[in-house]
Design a protein around this nucleic acid. Structure first.
Lengths: 342, 342
DNA sequence: TTTAGCAATCTATTTCTTTGACTGCTAATA
DNA sequence: TATTAGCAGTCAAAGAAATAGATTGCTAAA
C-alpha cells in the first residue's frame, strides 16, 4: 500500500529522483528551487525533505549533503511517478533499424532484442531462456550420428527447438531409433513439456523391445534439457563509466553477479510475472544485488513465454528510459510476429 | 635472437620477475640480497640492474622505486628462465578430480578443462571453438522440422558436431530433403570442411531437381557455420582482486576485451600454433591488450585441432604456474582420449 | 671488480587548513 | 497556520605543508 503523499511532496520526490539519476550527486534544496513547478523557497523544500526522510523516502549521505532517494523512494517513483513515454524519435529509429535483421531461430530474435536494449539504454543486458514446461511438444526426432551417438531434437508449438547429443557405450541400430522415435512421439506429443516422470518412463521401457539403459539415459538427458535455462549477459563493459563503479566493492559485486549468472536467473524465476518487473536493490533478496536493480520483461508470443529479457544496473538507474524502451521493444516483437516476420 | 646474459644477470632477472609476480611491488636491490643464490652486495646488484635496464629488460616506475620487468624482460623470462614443474601435489589432485566428469560432447570436455584452468590459476579463461577447415566431413544430415524449417547437422572425423537451423519462405518436401542429403553427402563427405565455393554450388544446383534458392540458402548457412568460431569467457570476476585493477583504466580495458570477444579470437587465430603460445602485452598488437598477457594451448586429439583454451590476465602473470597447469591438462586430455574416455 | 657509504630523489602518508555546500532551527512574516 | 529569510553549525572534499621511508646512483676505497 503506497503511502499517500500530497502533491508537493510527490513533485519534490520526483524531482529528486530524476536529478539524482541524471547527476549521481545528492540533491540539495537549493537546486530544487530552480524547478519551475515548485513555487516555494528552499526553506520550505527543506522542511518537506525532512519529512520525506522521516517517512523513509529519502536518505542523507551525511549531514551537510543533499538528499538521495532510498530504495523505498525509488519504489514509489517507479510505481507512482514514472513517465513512460520517454523515447526520442531518434531512439525509436535506432530500435527499428537494429531490429530489422532477418533471423532463423527465435533465440536469435532474443539476441537481437538484447543487443538493441543494451545499445539504447547503455546498461548490461540479460537474456534468459524460457522455462519451457508450459509449452507443448509437437515433435521429437532422434538422429543417429555414428553408431553410438544419438541426437535428440524436441520441437514445441511456440517454435522453440532444443537439441541434445547423447553418447552411449554400446551400438545403436536404426531399428531401435525408429522404435524410440515412434514411442516417444506417441507418448509425449501434444503434452506439455514437463519432466518425464517414473510412470511415463515405465511405460516407454515396457513398449521398447530393447535397452532399458538406453532409455534411462535418453530420459535423463531430455530432462536435463528441460531444466536448464541458459543465461546470457551482454555489455558488461557498459557499466564501467558509471560513477558508482569507482567504488571497488561495487565493481566487485557486479563482476560476481555477471559471472554467477544463476544469481540473476534465480531472482527472475522466483519473481512474479508482471508485464514488466522491477527489482530494486535488496528487494531481490540477494545480498550481492543490494546495490543493483534489475528490470525485465517476458518475451511473449501468443501468450507463450519464450524468454526473459532484462537489464541490470545500479539502483540509480534511469527507470523511465529503461521501461519505455522495453515496452517499445516488447510491442515491436509482437507486432513483427503477427505480421509473420517469424 | 635472445641476447646472451651472463649467469648473474639471468639470476637477477629471474628473481626480479618472480618477486614482482608475487608481490606486484617494484623490486629493490636490497630485497634481492636476501636471495641465497646471489652472493653479492646490494651495490653490485644495483650496477647489474642498471645494465639490465640499459638493455631493456627492466624498467623503473620512478627514480626512487625498485625495478619491474619490461615486456622484453617477461619475454626472456618465459623463453629462457621459466620453471615448468610448478604444480603441487594438491593442485594435481584437484585437476584430476575436476576432470573426472563424464561428458557427451567434445565441447563439454573443453568446458570442463576451462573451468578447471580457471579454478587452479585464478585467472579468466577463454575457450575458442576450433577452426574446422582442416577437419574432414564424415556425414551431413538434413532433418525437416515442420514444413519450412530445416536442421542441418555436420559431423567431422574429430567428433565435432555443428548444427544449424534454417528457415524457408516455402514448403519443403521430404523428397527434396532426401535428395539434398544424398547430393550433399556425395559431394562433400571425405573432403576437408572448407567453405563451399562456386563450382561445388553449381554442381549441386545442377544435380538437384528443384529449388536453387533453397540450395543457395543452405550453402550460405553452412558456410556461416564453418566461419564463426565462438568464444567463451569464464571467471571474469577472478581479476578483480588483482592490484592492477585498482586503476580504472585497466579495469575498463579488461571489461572491453571480455565483452568484445573477437579481439581475443583475432589474436589467437593470427598467432602461430606452437605447443603453448604466450602473447605478452603489446606483442598481440592490439592496443586494448597492451597491459594484458594471453597464454593458450590447442586442444589436439590425434593431431586434429578441436579448440583453443587459454587464459587472460595482467602482464604480471604467473607464467610458470599457468604453463605448468596447461601442460598437465593438455596431456591429461590426450591420455583420457587414448584410454577411450571420449 | 666489488663494496661501503652517503647525498639526492621521489612517493606515500599524515596532518592541518581552508573552502564551500548544505541543513536545521529560530524568529519574523503573510 | 504555512511560509520564508537569515544564520549558525556541520561535514566532506580539496589543498598545502610537513614528514617519513624507500631506493637509487655515484664516489672512493678495498
Amino acid at each position: 500500500m503506497p503511502e499517500n503523499l500530497d502533491n508537493r511532496k510527490r513533485k519534490i520526490l520526483q524531482a529528486i529522483v530524476e536529478e539524482y539519476i541524471e547527476t549521481s550527486e545528492p540533491v540539495s534544496s537549493g537546486s530544487l528551487v530552480k524547478n519551475e513547478e515548485l513555487k516555494c523557497s528552499s526553506a520550505t523544500i527543506r522542511n518537506e525533505m525532512a519529512e520525506l526522510e522521516q517517512i523513509g523516502f529519502l536518505e542523507k549521505p551525511h549531514t551537510s549533503a543533499g538528499r538521495i532517494p532510498s530504495q523505498k523512494g525509488y519504489r514509489y517513483y517507479v510505481d507512482e511517478l514514472l513517465r513512460e513515454d520517454n523515447l526520442s524519435r531518434k531512439e525509436i529509429e535506432m530500435i527499428k533499424e537494429m531490429m530489422e535483421t532477418k533471423v532463423n531461430r527465435l533465440e536469435d530474435l532474443t539476441k537481437i532484442a538484447t543487443t538493441t536494449l543494451s545499445e539504447i539504454t547503455h546498461y548490461t543486458t540479460i537474456a534468459i531462456e524460457p522455462n519451457v514446461s508450459n509449452h507443448t511438444i509437437i515433435d521429437i526426432k532422434f538422429i543417429l550420428l555414428g553408431t553410438r551417438v544419438l541426437m535428440a531434437v524436441i520441437l514445441t508449438d511456440s517454435g522453440i527447438i532444443r537439441e541434445s547429443i547423447i553418447k552411449f557405450d554400446e551400438d545403436l541400430t536404426q531399428e531401435q531409433i525408429d522404435d524410440l522415435t515412434y514411442i516417444f512421439n506417441n507418448k509425449l506429443v501434444g503434452k506439455p513439456l514437463e519432466k518425464i516422470d517414473g510412470p511415463i518412463e515405465e511405460y516407454i521401457v515396457e513398449e521398447m523391445k530393447t535397452g532399458i539403459r538406453i532409455i534411462e539415459k535418453i530420459i535423463e538427458e531430455i530432462n536435463k534439457l528441460l531444466e536448464d535455462s541458459k543465461t546470457y549477459i551482454e555489455g558488461a563493459n557498459k557499466v564501467i563509466d558509471m560513477p558508482e563503479f569507482k567504488k571497488q566493492e561495487m565493481a566487485k559485486d557486479f563482476l560476481n553477479v555477471i559471472d554467477a549468472k544463476d544469481i540473476i536467473a534465480d531472482v527472475i524465476n522466483t519473481g512474479m510475472a508482471k508485464d514488466i518487473n522491477v527489482y530494486i536493490g535488496s528487494e531481490s533478496e540477494r545480498e550481492e544485488l543490494k546495490n543493483f536493480s534489475i528490470v525485465t520483461f517476458n518475451h511473449l508470443l501468443d501468450g507463450k513465454d519464450i524468454g526473459t529479457i532484462g537489464i541490470i544496473g545500479p539502483t540509480r538507474m534511469d527507470y523511465s528510459k529503461v521501461i519505455s524502451v522495453m515496452k517499445y521493444i516488447s510491442k515491436k516483437l509482437n507486432d513483427d510476429y503477427k505480421k509473420g516476420k517469424f
